[in-house]
């Protein structure tokens, strides 16, 4: 066997080993979470192999907890993330269509305003947005949790970029056929932009699902609208040493996103790389 082939072989094995070690290190915290979540009560903090019986006891205990009902938190998270993502995808598509295919007064001014707002760190919005939501009477409501974040500028730009590539001839021929503005949007623009709309939907879903600060700010601790991360934070305040229960509760937040991501990662990756390439 020639030396070159052997060297290639060794290089390959070395690379695979490095990649495997790296992957194990980066995913280790999540394996540990799952491991602790199925351990027996009082053993979450110990380095042993005493398992819960039945194995998913901790999950059931957290899901049906009366003071901190994680089943309710889960449904709230699902509702907030889904409706937030739907509204964002809809509003961004409509706005992007206007920017891509229409001329209107103040177009440049509005565009410039959107662009400059993109650089403001979200933390700086906490106080004024809280003040607004308080004055609107939106504390402890779904709309308070969802609406302030549905004007996603990044999503609008992403969609505009794509819609500009849709040929004008398609639109004018539909106009000749007597289609009105909404029909053009609904039956031509939306179907042709569906992959990007899906990307915006998924990225917003992810953002809303994992958003902690705003859901913490807009809800009081006795709110019925708490989402998973806020519920987990409050639960932890009460049971800071019950690691088996804490990790089971954490898994309710992590597992759905992990499954969603692995199933649809093409859309996530496309959206995230498009943002950077644009810069």
């Amino acid at each position: 066997m020639d030396v070159k082939k052997i060297r290639e072989r060794i290089k390959k094995i070395l690379l695979l080993t490095m990649l495997s070690v790296g992957a194990i290190l980066m995913l280790f915290p999540f394996f540990w979470m799952l491991f602790v979540a199925v351990k027996a009560e009082g053993h979450g903090f110990k380095l042993d192999f005493v398992m819960a019986a039945p194995l998913f006891k901790n999950f059931a205990a957290v899901w049906n907890n009366t003071a901190f009902p994680f089943s309710r938190f889960f449904m709230n998270s699902l509702f907030v993330a889904t409706s937030g993502a739907f509204m964002t995808a809809l509003f961004c598509s409509m706005g992007a269509y206007a920017f891509a295919k229409k001329n209107f007064v103040f177009k440049e001014v509005i565009f410039w305003m959107l662009l400059s707002t993109l650089m403001i760190p979200g933390m700086m919005y906490m106080v004024p947005q809280f003040a607004l939501v308080t004055q609107f009477g939106w504390i402890n409501t779904y709309k308070g949790m969802i609406i302030p974040h549905v004007a996603n500028i990044f999503g609008l730009f992403l969609l505009r970029q794509h819609m500009e590539t849709i040929p004008d001839a398609l639109i004018s021929s539909a106009e000749i056929d007597g289609a009105n503005e909404w029909q053009i949007f609904r039956h031509i623009i939306v179907p042709l932009s569906m992959p990007i709309i899906t990307t915006v939907f998924l990225l917003t879903f992810l953002f809303q699902w994992t958003n902690f600060l705003w859901q913490l700010v807009v809800n009081t601790p006795d709110s019925l609208k708490l989402t998973l991360p806020v519920g987990l934070a409050l639960f932890r305040g009460q049971y800071s040493t019950q690691w088996t229960l804490l990790m089971a509760a954490s898994a309710f937040s992590i597992i759905p996103i992990a499954v969603l991501f692995l199933a649809l990662q093409r859309f996530f990756i496309e959206g995230l790389t498009a943002g950077a390439v644009k810069e």
Binding site: L27, P29, W32, T210, F212, P229, M247, S250, S253
Partner: peptide, 21 residues
């Protein structure tokens, strides 16, 4: 996928797990 996955997961939860570690 394995390397990219952690970056989409809930930051609060990741912080809580590391507190245990």
């Amino acid at each position: 996928s394995a390397y990219f996955l952690p970056s989409v997961l809930d930051m609060l939860v990741v912080g809580v797990i590391w507190t245990l570690l």
